[in-house]
Write a protein that binds this DNA or RNA. Structure first.
Lengths: 197, 197
DNA sequence: AGCGCTGCTGGACACGAGTCCAGGTTCTAC
DNA sequence: GTAGAACCTGGACTCGTGTCCAGCAGCGCT
């Protein structure tokens, strides 16, 4: 690894991080993922993540005010870093919408533990988490609008946004299996965008 | 008041509550509402609610394992107790759906504080809260299915459910004003059920 | 009236989260 | 190479949450 000067994702933690700080933050978010997979969200604490990252708890707390903040940051980084293929207007609006929604939902889908954890963490009413939620909501809206262009009303986009929120919520609470998401979202898109055929 | 023998709502706390216990639980849920309105959700604790209800904290903890459980119970009781007018098939499916969804969303709408609190509380990953969520989800599904009958596909109902989850979520996180819900839900219903005006 | 059971009391306790700070370590500029 | 700044360390501290238990009170039964 030795990712000394690599371009780390934009930090949503504090403005103006030095390289050194960025690296510390990066170690923490990476450690958080591992911790999530190995011990699960409930057992995860800022302290254990700090330990795994080889960093003092107090240091971790200077960047992340809570475990929710830490986990939400993981989601944000992945979502932001996600590659967005250019819109292909030959495909139906519903198909395009499904792509965006799935991209969003599956950012963390490799590991189900991570997925559920992130969803729950995103709901905390922590100022840092609120900020991340806003950014994520905004970015999702942009990606949806861009993919759909004039093919969708504002109401349709709102509905899609509500539906994806609801879907993640239900996954987070365990009422919906992560594996069921693709079909469900495809259905929703088709319905909302009245896919011809 | 002296509500000695009145029919209190079904308790989702423990099975087989004696009259005396039911009364204690009732005092607690009422006190929780007042507490929410007066000091807000973050400041609410099981202890303060117990105090307001004139009950020892330990007693409160025998019925509610956490403040989330307590608040979620408030929502459940109100939703369950809600009167459901018989389905009027002369109205459009979209209008019927909107009614059900609004009824759900506005159970606690009188006081915005309560609304936001409930939404957040519902998300806790507490076994008691999970149970309440299941019940609520089921009851909502029943009411929707009943109101729509054969006028809606399973996909449409799923979409409506996702949308209402998402809407409450966004309210809970402060990204959506409670007042905006009626219009939004009406839009969604119209779109999903292709209201032929 | 007296007995017994059920439910409530209240205070002590364990535990974990988040804060704070004085001191040590690493980086940067000269 | 050295000074100074920026950053990290580690351990102590506070505070709130949820648990536990020994004793007390209220209610139904005889």
């Amino acid at each position: 690894m030795s990712s000394s000067a690599v371009q780390l994702p934009t930090a949503a933690t504090r403005r103006h991080l030095s390289d050194r700080q960025a690296k510390t933050v990066h170690k923490l978010t990476e450690a958080a993922v591992v911790e999530l997979i190995e011990v699960g969200y409930p057992a995860l604490t800022v302290r254990t993540v700090a330990k795994r990252a080889g960093v003092a708890p107090a240091t971790a707390y200077t960047y992340f005010g809570s475990k929710e903040h830490l986990v939400a940051e993981v989601f944000w980084r992945r979502f932001e870093a996600q590659e967005v293929p250019p819109t292909d207007r030959r495909r139906s609006p519903a198909a395009r919408a499904t792509d965006v929604l799935l991209g969003f939902a599956l950012v963390v889908a490799d590991e189900t533990e991570v997925a559920a954890a992130v969803t729950v963490a995103m709901l905390a009413d922590d100022p840092e988490v609120r900020e991340l939620r806003s950014r994520i909501g905004l970015l999702l809206h942009q990606r949806l609008s861009e993919a759909l262009g004039d093919d969708a009303s504002a109401a349709a986009i709102s509905t899609l946004e509500l539906a994806i929120s609801g879907a993640l919520l239900q996954v987070g609470t365990g009422h919906l299996a992560y594996g069921a998401i693709p079909d469900l979202l495809a259905q929703v898109s088709a319905l909302v965008l009245k896919d011809p055929r």
